[in-house]
Amino acid sequence: MPGSQPYDVIVIGLGSMGGAAANALAERGARVLGLETYQPGHDRGSAHGGTRIIRQSYFEDSAYVPLLFSSYAGFRKLEQESGRDLMQLCGGIYIGHPESKTFAGSHAAALEHGLEHEVLTAAQIRERFPTMDPRDDAMGLYEANAGYVRPEETVRANVEVAARKGAELHFDEPVLYWSAEGEGVTVRTALGNYRASRLVITPGAWAPELLAGMRLPLSVERMVFHWFTPDFDATPQPAWSEEQHPIYVEQTGENLQIYGFPMTDGPEGGFKLGFFREGIPTTANTIDRSIYPAENVRMQARARELFPHLSGEVVQAKTCLYTVTPDEHFIIGLHPEHPQVSVACGFSGHGFKFVPVVGEILADLALTGETAHPIELFDPQRSSLQG
C-alpha cells in the first residue's frame, strides 16, 4: 500500500515486457511492485490476438539473432514454470525477390549465425505448401525453428509466476505521474504515492505520455488483424493447419508486406494475417476500434496474391497498437537524465518474440545499471532518434 516501506523496483506496465521484467526481478530477490491500468492479457494495447510470430533468420537486422537464442530458452523456461503452452514451432518461410529485404535479409542472418535453413524456388514453395502461389521470380527462405507464441497466455504466465516469486502486482490501477529525485523514484496513482530505489517503465502505446520528457520520436499506429475462411474444396483443410503450414512473411516487388499464421484454432478460428507495415496514426486513448468492410476487402485482395484460395468470408478482425520508431528498432536502456529509471518501448510491431530476454535485460539494468546482452542497437540516444 502507498506509504509503506519503499520497494526496490517499481514496474509501470504489466503487459508483455513489464510482466517479464517483474518476473525476472522477483526471481532475483528484489522487492517488486508492478502497476497496470488493466487486467492481465487485455486487448487494449499490443499483446493480444491469439498468436505472434517467433523466428530466428531475422531480416530486420542480424544483430537480433543472439537475443532470439536467449528468448527461445526463456519461453521454454516460462512454459515449465507456468504450466502453460506458449510456443509452437511449426516452421517459417520468408518470401520475396532474391534481392528483397524479406528474403535476402533472412538469408544473410541465417548464414551469419549458422542457422539451419532451406532456400526454395517459387515452384518448390508451391509444391511443399499448396496453399501458396508466389510469383515465379520469388524465392523463399524456410526455417524449421520458427513458429508462433501465444501473447495473452504469455502475459498471464509472467504475472502469475512473478506473483509466486513474491512480486506485488496491482491491476486496474493506472499510473498518473512518476518522478525521479536523488537516487530514488516516486510513482503516483489514484490510491496515493509509492516509493522505490529504481523504476522500470514499459508503457507500450502509452509511451508518448509516460515518457514525454525524453522527447522520443514515436509513432503510435492502429493496425488490424484479419481472419478469413479458406476454400477447403480447392485446398483441403489440413494444408492450412499448423501440422502442414508455416508462419510466413511475404513481400514481392511493390506489394505491401504481409505476415501470418497457419490455422491454429481450427476452421472456426479462421486463417490469420495482416499487413506488416501499414498503420494509421492514432493514440492509445483515441484509437478507432471499429473494423470497416473496406479494410477486410483490401486485406483479402492482397492476401489472395499469395493465397489464391483464401476466398471465404472474414471470420473476425481486431485492432492492435504498434509503437514505431523511425528506424523500426527498439528503445531499451537507461533514462538519459535519470539513471535509476530503465525504459523499454518502441517495439515497432516485431517485439513480442523477445519478451523473455527483454525482461532479463530490464532486470539487469534496474539492479546493476548494465547488461551483458547486446543492446547497442536500442540505445535511447542513438543518432537515428535525434531530430
Rank of each mutant, 00 (worst) to 15 (best):
E153H: 07
A180G: 12
G140V: 05
N158W: 11
A157P: 02
Y177V: 00
D137V: 00
G140R: 12
V159W: 07
F171D: 04
G166Y: 11
Y177W: 11
N145D: 14
H170D: 01
F171V: 04
R150A: 06
D137C: 00
E173K: 03
L176R: 15
E152H: 05
Y177E: 15
E160T: 13
E173Y: 02
D137F: 03
A163F: 00
E160Y: 06
G147F: 11
G182R: 08
T154A: 12
D136G: 06
A167W: 11
R164P: 00
W178P: 05
G147R: 08
A180M: 02
A138M: 12
Y148V: 09
V161K: 09
D133N: 15
R135C: 10
V159S: 07
L141I: 08
A162K: 05
H170F: 08
L141N: 09
E153V: 05
D137W: 01
P151G: 09
V155M: 09
L176F: 00
A167N: 09
A162T: 05
E152N: 04
D137R: 07
V175D: 02
E153Q: 13
F171P: 03
G166V: 10
G140H: 12
P151V: 13
D136N: 11
P174F: 08
N145G: 00
P151E: 12
N158D: 13
G140A: 12
A162C: 07
E160F: 07
P174H: 10
A144T: 03
M139V: 08
V149W: 00
V149R: 00
E173G: 01
E168A: 14
T154H: 03
M139Q: 15
P134I: 14
G182P: 01
N145I: 00
E153K: 08
P151L: 13
E153T: 07
N145F: 13
G182H: 07
A144Y: 05
G182C: 06
R135Y: 14
Y148H: 13
W178F: 02
N145H: 13
A146E: 08
L141A: 06
H170M: 10
A157R: 05
D137Q: 12
V159G: 02
V175L: 04
R156A: 05
F171L: 07
V159E: 03
S179C: 10
V149S: 01
A163Q: 13
G166K: 12
G140N: 11
L176M: 13
A180Y: 01
D133V: 14
P151R: 11
D137I: 00
N158R: 03
Y148Q: 05
G166W: 10
D172S: 11
F171T: 08
D133C: 14
Y142K: 02
E160H: 12
T154C: 10
F171E: 04
G166P: 09
N158P: 00
P174N: 08
A157S: 10
L169T: 04
M139W: 12
G166L: 12
M139Y: 11
W178H: 13
V155H: 08
D172E: 11
T154P: 03
D133L: 14
M139P: 00
V149P: 00
E153S: 14
V149E: 00
D133Q: 15
P151D: 08
